[in-house]
Write a protein that binds this DNA or RNA. Structure first.
Lengths: 132, 132
DNA sequence: ATTAAAATGAAAACTATTCTTATTGCCGTG
DNA sequence: CACGGCAATAAGAATAGTTTTCATTTTAAT
């Protein structure tokens, strides 16, 4: 499964790529910075250089295998792209990320954009929240 | 008007701060990166160090005088905070930023967050669009 | 197996931003 | 108006996340 995805992206199937993709597949819905992923790989006895992590994540992103997000302005995080679009809520106290999908919200965005004579290409939406 | 705002923020009224605030006031609704602002100041014969620009923008942000946005992941931009909340559309072709406010969108966000048992603290929303 | 093309690790380079340090400028008090 | 204290400044060094370079290794197609 994963090997095929890498090949379909026009990339060679290498150990680093397999190990990174496998880890993200095993942790769907979780978000990792490049550095965090680097540490996880080390912990799993996979010796991958940080530069390779960055390179592979970028390649995976353009291939549509992973999504990149920027919850905090100074560090990007990545997650497996499951193909199902969703937005994020970030608990400002705990840092926990909650994924959600709201059809009404999606429709509303398209409507707003069209009212201005545009077409919606992409969007970025993060709600910063706090437990009541 | 502007002097008072700086004072109310607990900051001393200095030339750099006045010049930066004046420029942003004269260009409401436009967005400037620190570097761009630095160049604008130089062009206006105001000799302000880049570090000062960053420092002052941060202070203005915590004082609520300016808003910081991150349309492109590697560079923050700032605009005068007029007190009226709005979101942004970015034309992916021209780079043009369109500000908009949609009451329904705001309400919907609160609703979504409350359904999960949270309180909305802040949000970030950018629609990437293209001319039809 | 052979071999060209692509991928890797390590270190250097880059870029936006922040910090350090010595100096300057604001402002309340006398 | 002069003084002294302390915040603000400029300049450049430092930092952190990320990207690039380059020599070496690995992949995959024959």
């Amino acid at each position: 499964m994963s090997k095929k995805d890498i090949k379909d992206a026009g990339l060679k199937v290498t150990l680093p790529r397999l190990q990174i993709l496998e880890f993200l597949t095993d942790h769907k819905g979780k978000h990792y910075s490049a550095e965090a992923l680097y540490d996880e790989m080390k912990a799993a006895d996979h010796d991958i250089g940080l530069a390779t992590i960055y390179r592979v994540l970028n390649q995976f992103e353009t291939a549509g295998l992973v999504c990149k997000h920027q919850f905090e302005e100074n560090q990007a995080v990545y997650e497996l792209d499951t193909g199902e679009h969703h937005d994020h809520m970030v608990d400002v106290d705990s840092g926990k990320v909650i994924e959600f999908y709201d059809a009404e919200l999606e429709k509303l965005q398209v409507k707003i954009v069209e009212e201005q004579g545009y077409e919606l290409i992409d969007h970025k939406m993060v709600l910063y929240v706090k437990k009541k």
